[in-house]
């Protein structure tokens, strides 16, 4: 089963995603796919917070900053994968580290295709994204491209996943499928 989950910042997306992954995995393997490339102390703090949140839940961490299918070299596809987040994967694809973080216009489509292929290859997956589309700003071209690209990935994931959920103030709103809790 595949679940796509989005919502605003600090609304409880990661917490719910962990609960769903634990529930879906049953007695099987559960993997946390770490997607963020930390670049400063704030990033390391966030990683420490997320690691502490997951402590005791039995997740094995698989680092995968791009090409989602490559993490299956190090994990059993019959397990349950928590991917947090599509937002970080897009950032890594759109501004690749190996190209000195310069914009790669092909990155967004590649990221979407790899995620969809990954969802088709694994038994269970929960993918988290960020809802960054409802503020009163007029952004620069690059930021707007990032928002548009993430929305494109979100829509692909929402179309492909069995269940689609928006999390608001810790509460799930189910747009598609059923909440497997």
């Amino acid at each position: 089963m595949t679940v796509f989950l989005s919502g605003g910042a600090k609304n409880g997306k990661s917490t719910l995603a962990q609960q769903l992954a634990v529930k879906l995995s049953g007695e099987g393997k559960r993997y946390y796919v770490a997607t963020m490339i930390p670049t400063d102390e704030e990033d390391y703090d966030r990683i420490r917070r997320h690691v502490a949140d997951r402590a005791g839940l039995g997740f094995e961490t698989v680092e995968c900053e791009k090409n989602m299918l490559s993490c299956l070299d190090r994990a059993d596809k019959n397990g349950t994968f928590l991917v947090d987040s599509a937002t970080a994967l897009l950032q890594n694809a759109l501004f690749p580290r190996e190209k000195n973080y310069e914009l790669d216009l092909e990155g967004a489509k590649r990221c979407a295709d790899e995620l969809i292929a990954f969802l088709g290859a694994v038994k269970h997956a929960v993918v988290v994204s960020d809802y960054i589309y409802a503020d009163a700003q007029r952004y620069d071209e690059i930021t707007e491209l990032y928002r548009k690209s993430l929305a494109g990935i979100d829509r692909c994931l929402a179309a492909a996943c069995d269940t689609v959920i928006e999390v608001t103030a810790g509460n799930p709103i189910v747009y598609k499928g059923v909440l497997p809790l």
């Binding site: 605003g8 409802a134 009163a136 007029r138």
Partner: peptide
């Protein structure tokens, strides 16, 4: 488009728009 869910914009124009 819903533009209601961000931080209060710094610019008066943007606040008025929202």
């Amino acid at each position: 488009r819903d533009i209601s869910a961000g931080v209060v914009p710094m610019g008066a124009d943007m606040r008025s728009w929202r």
